[in-house]
Amino acid sequence: MLSDDLTHLALCWRLVRRDGAALGFTSHDAALLVDGLIHLARPGMTPSAVVLGDGLEANDMEVAGALSAGALTASDLLAGRWDGARVELFLVDWRVPDAGRHVLASGTLGEVAVGDGADASFTAELLGPGAALAASAVELCSPECRAELGDARCRVSLRGREPILLLAEAEPDRVRADGITAADFAQGSLLVLDGPQAGLERRLIAEDDGWLLFDEPLALAAGTRVQVQEGCDKRFATCRDRFGNAANFRGEPQVPGADLLTRYQF
């Protein structure tokens, strides 16, 4: 493809969301069918310089483009529907797009910034495979539990702790529902089951007078059906007294903290 005297190359993007939904775009002036997915013509969608190396550093890059009501939308990006989506950038011969492709970069979608105005644009960070090398390979000592409620290390059963209910009241940064003890769901999560925001999830960071507060705003309406999951503040006393799960506590509550040397004894 690249060794021909005369090339007929088109740049293509493929985004695959975590729920399996996929979008394709191309810099060509007409849509291309590649591996069964139609890649829509988006000539204004351009990447930053693509740098490929054989070292261990993370080869990250950015992509910029115009938003389209029929494809990527500002509301979907800002709501987090595309967070962590798999992204692949490649070249094809636009005359025979299924004949083969030359992959330039791949990774996951990172931080997204959306512009203002009717013709809004966006920039998105593409995190290459090397970005995983920046993650810590071992756990650090901590007084709080490092497991998540209900996971394989915690082992607390979530049966009966993930009720489905209708919202009694809703505001952009908080919601209230009847029939539950709201305090039990602080540090838990909320999954929207119907309406225009179906599929979106928010962390419930705190409880305030019966209201559950979001970590990020989410526009919901009273009567929306949601599933909420109980939370845990990750303290040993909570694990022992509320869940009876002290044997599986994944923290070190007795290890002295950094303030040990500043303590005074009278």
Rank of each mutant, 00 (worst) to 15 (best):
D119Y: 11
D119I: 08
D119Q: 11
A120Y: 00
S121R: 12
S121V: 05
S121Y: 02
F122I: 00
F122S: 04
T123P: 11
T123E: 08
T123R: 14
E125G: 05
E125L: 08
E125D: 08
L126S: 03
L126C: 01
L127A: 03
L127S: 03
G128N: 08
G128A: 07
P129K: 06
G130Y: 08
G130S: 06
A131T: 03
L133I: 05
L133N: 14
A134P: 09
A135K: 14
A135R: 14
A135Q: 13
S136D: 12
A137C: 04
A137K: 08
A137T: 04
V138T: 12
V138H: 11
V138P: 10
E139W: 12
E139S: 12
E139M: 12
E139D: 13
L140N: 13
L140K: 15
L140M: 13
C141I: 15
S142T: 15
S142F: 14
S142D: 15
P143T: 07
E144R: 15
C145Q: 07
C145H: 10
C145D: 10
C145T: 05
R146A: 12
R146E: 11
A147N: 14
A147S: 14
A147W: 13
L149Y: 09
G150D: 01
D151E: 10
D151Y: 10
D151H: 10
D151A: 05
A152V: 10
A152F: 09
A152T: 12
A152Y: 09
R153C: 11
C154Q: 07
C154L: 05
R155I: 13
R155M: 14
R155K: 14
V156D: 01
V156N: 03
V156C: 02
V156E: 01
S157K: 00
L158W: 00
L158N: 01
L158I: 03
L158F: 00
R159K: 13
G160V: 06
G160Q: 04
R161L: 02
R161G: 01
E162R: 12
E162M: 11
E162W: 08
P163R: 06
P163Q: 05
P163K: 04
I164N: 14
I164Y: 11
L165S: 03
L165Q: 06
L165E: 06
L166I: 14
L166W: 15
L166N: 15
L167Y: 07
L167I: 05
A168P: 11
A168I: 08
A168V: 09
E169P: 04
E169I: 05
A170I: 05
A170N: 07
E171G: 08
E171K: 09
E171V: 04
E171D: 06
P172V: 03
P172E: 04
P172D: 07
D173E: 14
D173Q: 15
D173F: 13
R174A: 02
R174L: 02
V175S: 06
V175F: 08
V175M: 02
V175W: 07
V175N: 06
R176P: 06
R176H: 04
A177M: 02
A177H: 02
D178R: 09
D178Q: 07
D178S: 04
I180G: 06
I180P: 06
T181Y: 09
T181F: 09
T181G: 07
A183L: 01
A183S: 01
A183Y: 00
D184I: 00
D184Y: 04
D184P: 10
D184K: 07
F185H: 01
A186N: 01
